[in-house]
Every structure is written in structure tokens, then in C-alpha cells.
């Protein structure tokens, strides 16, 4: 099955950090995430993690000016296996907390040889 890289992205104008969830809400999210993971356990190759600070490495030392800070764009990543891009999108879309107001997920096929 082809594999897909899923990147959580902050949407332009979106506010990725909303209100802080309460402990009871955290418990609910924990339950939902586990249920999602169980449902798609055959598809989840690498649950990945959150991404911290990053910077684009360029062939030459960068000129003065705005650097491309990755953290503004990407919240977390994971790798899923799916029969098609549509299926991979469906799996990522169902993941609790990934697709929400202010953020979406970009799904990219990882091309393998042959």
C-alpha cells in the first residue's frame, strides 16, 4: 500500500492556539484519539509527533531578510498507509484535533521505487 506523509498546517489567518482545553476535555480527546488509532491501526505506519522550530537550509548562507520558519506552517506530522490519496485524506481528516478551525492537514504521497 502506498504511504502518505501528513503534515498539519496552520491555515492563513487561522489561530492555531485556541482556548486551552480543560482536564475533562483532555480526557475526552485522549479517548477519541485512541479510538481513532484503534480504528485505523492497519493504516498507521508512524504516528509521528509535534514539530518544533525549524529553518530552511539553503545551498548558500542565507542573505539578510526573513527566513522561512517552518514552525509557522507545520504543527505535526505522521505517516499513513492507504490505497489512495483520498483514503489517506479521509484517515487524516478523522484524526481528532488535526483538522480543526485554524488548521488543516496536507497529505502527500511518498513515492517508492519501482
Amino acid at each position: 500500500m502506498p504511504k502518505y506523509l501528513c503534515l498539519q498546517r496552520a491555515l492563513t489567518g487561522g489561530q492555531p492556539q485556541g482556548e486551552r482545553p480543560s482536564p475533562a476535555q483532555l480526557q475526552e480527546m485522549y479517548g477519541k484519539f485512541n479510538a481513532w488509532r484503534e480504528k485505523f491501526k492497519d493504516n498507521l505506519v508512524d504516528l509521528g509527533g509535534r514539530l518544533g522550530n525549524g529553518r530552511l537550509a539553503l545551498p548558500e548562507s542565507p542573505p539578510d531578510g526573513p527566513f522561512v520558519e517552518l514552525k509557522e506552517l507545520v504543527g505535526g506530522y505522521m505517516i499513513v498507509a492507504a490505497a489512495s490519496l483520498d483514503e489517506a485524506i479521509a484517515i487524516a481528516r478523522e484524526c481528532p484535533g488535526v483538522v480543526r478551525p485554524g488548521s488543516g492537514v496536507e497529505v502527500i504521497e511518498i513515492l517508492s521505487q519501482g
Binding site: R20, P21, Y30, F33
Partner: peptide, 8 residues
Amino acid sequence: VSALESWP
């Protein structure tokens, strides 16, 4: 929140 992100 860290637990929620890392334990599952």
C-alpha cells in the same frame, strides 16, 4: 497537554 500529545 504534553501527556495527551505523547502517550497515545
